[in-house]
Design a protein around this nucleic acid. Structure first.
Lengths: 337, 337
DNA sequence: CTGTTAGCGCATTCAC
DNA sequence: GTGAATGCGCTAACAG
């Protein structure tokens, strides 16, 4: 740690510790002269307050916790950028925790953050999460929490999401407009509201097109990319009529690509693909991938901003402050998908 | 914060605070009976020690800081995964800071971490960093630091990198083997050792093939993707003999693709491209991109492991512990690039 | 305007 | 084996 502390400054200046403290905190009750003197020496000696002493005393950490499933994914990378930026602007620090998509880890982490280590939490729940009991304690402790992207509907707090139902509807509708009649739906977080909303969009689009829903067209992916690909391929080989794929996440869109290649189905002639993805270079894929692009950076920023309103202005976080940001359907001409 | 503290436990059990503290820390001087009693009540009441009080007292935070340029990039995403995993295994927390590739931010962040907030630092320097003065304080304070990927040669501490010179050589050599004779080199961090090593690999490969080096073939990219693309395109249009591109980072490889498309140069017929990249789906690009793939996850893990050896076993971190991990040249058949 | 005092919650030294 | 006392470094209430 920084070796110089308040006491040393005080001795060197022949002042009391509290005066020095107040001078450094720019308190109104200190004369301009002493303030200057103190601040000068402080910078000279490179004084930095001990954050833990300060946190202990103030009962606040100037730190937020961010809990996400995984970083190895464009969406969360961008979201973190947004979060970190807002945090820094407000003089806060960011602790990061990964659940690796497991419920157990999520529980442990949430539990461990209920000890004062952080003043607030931003969380995107794991794919396994079905139960919200572990969030109860946060509420009890009045620990401000904002969900983003992957939310827990049961918890009454603010949630920043994309218009998932609409996105699912528009994506499916687009495939239908391109002539698809038998559209596979690939989903990861099937018991999360995000997955369900996207799927409802898919179902409603089918219904509005007077097409029946066939649940054999539904594939629930897992964390293993190769397995997902194999699964999709198998279905493609079983069902020659499949002419479209709507992937709920980027990795599954890729699995769709690979599966088509392996099954000898040409994209977009035989099968058209559309997927949620924040990939910059989707247009360079072969063929270009039509994507639903989420405003990932904005989601991170909005979530953080909401949290800091609570932390800095002491506004409670209400479910009514939830935001649903618009996603963008980016059609890449040549694919049709 | 967690509302129950040592004092309350002590009162409820009719014990002294110190006994309770020792019981919870499994001290040898406490009887098995009391230990059990104490631990039982502690779990019942959901006691969690206040981390800041504990840190203040122990003079250590069980927290490490990770400083990186940006997360919006596959390499750092994977590295973070590796780091977080090792940290959690060792019961440590991870604070994350982004420099956004600017030197000023890097300075500020490094400076701010020299106050005891973290017990150790993992850093990948910004593209602008040329001066290592801001790291001096870390050394002074004996704050264990490990560089990874983008290192600062001047600082005498451990560094985990890829075999950048070799990678650059192999990449260039591969293009030469495929018949390229006029190879553009795109680099981002040109004054960083990582950029220079890759370039030296490029230069030596040219020399070994008895080809002259033409510095008009060198493009120094910036943070703006569109600008980079425009720059590459311009050069392609000026110089019709260019038949290869070696991109030092993923984003520049993509810029190369776009530029070729715009300039009407066919890949790989007219121009072959090879780039550093951890993109899983490089084989799905049109045409597939031959990549030098860095062991990003392993780099994160190794760097963290080294740091924790210092933190937990009190071993000093030495420059001699530096590691150079092997990258992998992944040739995608159809491109030739 | 400045100093004295107290205490945040915990770990540890010293007593017994 | 347990309790009392001390202090990590800082902030804040209370005097003056």
């Amino acid at each position: 740690m920084s070796s110089v502390n308040l006491k040393q400054l005080a001795q060197a200046l022949d002042l009391s510790v509290s005066t020095v403290s107040r001078a450094l905190n720019d308190s109104y009750e200190i004369s301009a002269a002493t303030k200057e003197k103190v601040q000068l020496l402080a910078t000279q000696l490179g004084y930095q307050p001990n954050p833990y002493a300060s946190s202990l005393r103030r009962q606040q950490s100037r730190t937020i916790g961010v809990i996400i499933p995984e970083v190895a994914n464009n969406f969360f990378s961008l979201a973190i950028n947004g979060i970190e930026e807002v945090a820094r602007q407000n003089g806060y620090h960011v602790l990061i925790y990964l659940t690796h998509e497991t419920f157990a880890q999520e529980q442990t982490i949430v539990q461990h953050l209920a000890n004062g280590r952080v003043d607030g939490i931003l969380i995107s729940v794991s794919g396994e999460t079905q139960d919200a009991a572990h969030f109860a304690k946060l509420r009890e402790l009045n620990l401000p929490t904002v969900f983003f992207d992957r939310v827990c509907e049961e918890v009454a707090t603010a949630k920043i999401t994309t218009d998932d139902y609409d996105s699912g509807y528009r994506a499916t509708r687009h495939l239908l407009d391109m002539g698809c009649r038998r559209i596979m739906h690939l989903t990861l977080a099937h018991h999360l509201s995000i997955g369900q909303k996207r799927m409802r969009g898919y179902l409603d689009a089918l219904r509005d097109a007077d097409l029946p829903f066939d649940d054999t067209l539904l594939i629930r992916g897992g964390p293993n990319a190769a397995q997902n690909t194999a699964h999709v391929r198998q279905l493609l080989e079983q069902d020659a009529h499949i002419d479209g794929i709507f992937a709920s996440v980027e990795s599954l869109a890729i699995a769709g690509y690979r599966a088509c290649h392996q099954a000898g189905r040409r994209i977009p002639n035989d099968v058209k693909i559309i997927g949620f993805s924040n990939l910059e270079m989707a247009d360079l894929l072969d063929p270009p991938l039509t994507t639903i692009r989420q405003p990932a950076y904005a989601i991170g920023k909005e979530a953080a901003t909401l949290l800091f309103r609570a932390l800095l202005k002491n506004q409670p976080i209400l479910a009514s402050q939830s935001l649903e940001l618009k996603s963008e359907l980016v059609v890449r001409a040549s694919t049709g998908g």
